[in-house]
Amino acid sequence: MSSKIRLGYFLSETASNLRYNGLMTLASIGTVTVSMLVLGAFLLFNLNLKSTINEVSSKTRVCVYLKAGAPAGEVDVLKRMVEGLDGVRKVYYVSVDEARARLKQDMSGQADLGQIVDTVPLPASLEIEMADTSKITSVTSVIKGQPAIDEIHYGEDVVTTLNLIRRIVQIGGLGAIIILCIVTAFVIANTIRLTVFARRKEIRIMQLVGATDWFIKWPFIMEGIFHGLVGSLLAVGIAAAGYTWLANNWPLTFIFPLAYDEQTLLHISIALITGGMLVGAFGSFSSVRKFLRTVLV
């Protein structure tokens, strides 16, 4: 038999299965929608957390304070060495005068402090802009101990904390997603079990006249995939509408803008739809397989 005939048969069987129990189909689709919405929310949260960390990281600079009177030649060699290190984007030399000018600017308006700034001894420094903040520690450990260097400062704590938060969210979220997927697959499996039970006489005769297990299974698996597809499409629609609204109404004064990278959002949508269909297929497969194995020889 050509695959065309076979597909036609499977599709018509799937359609009649769906008609059999409309209410359970709705319940099943609804569960997929809720699960995929939570998964979507998690992925969007993670996306924003990641972009926030990148934002913070890109603003993180390593300040290398130089010893007073370090020879200009030595400083120059050090600057070139740091520039060549992995993860470093750019290195700026901040002279004593420049440092003083910056401080003055920061304290402008506080007239009586202007005088003090002139008298405070300020060191010259190298400012390292990182391309990859995860390399900060390796960069600092390499240059630590160089004779021209007095002290090294960087926003170590902020970056470490943000990365830790991200790890926790990822692990916790992953656990929650696995549980949700199992619950969804279970609900779909139960719905399909009802369809299987409603059609047990047909299945019985199919087995007796020599239909293969896979031939019997396919319409039910397609039914599960259909639940997953419709449920996840609904979830993607709701998530897209909600997120777009949020992006449009995001307060501009807020520290970080909402991530709205179309490519990534498309990937998230595809992940949700694929996930929904897989959960649906798995739920129905396990249900019909169990039925064929336990009830009939």
Partner: peptide, 11 residues
């Protein structure tokens, strides 16, 4: 016809 359909016989 069902008995033939399910073992994959053409229309």
């Amino acid at each position: 016809a069902f008995a033939l359909h399910v073992i994959g016989v053409g229309k």
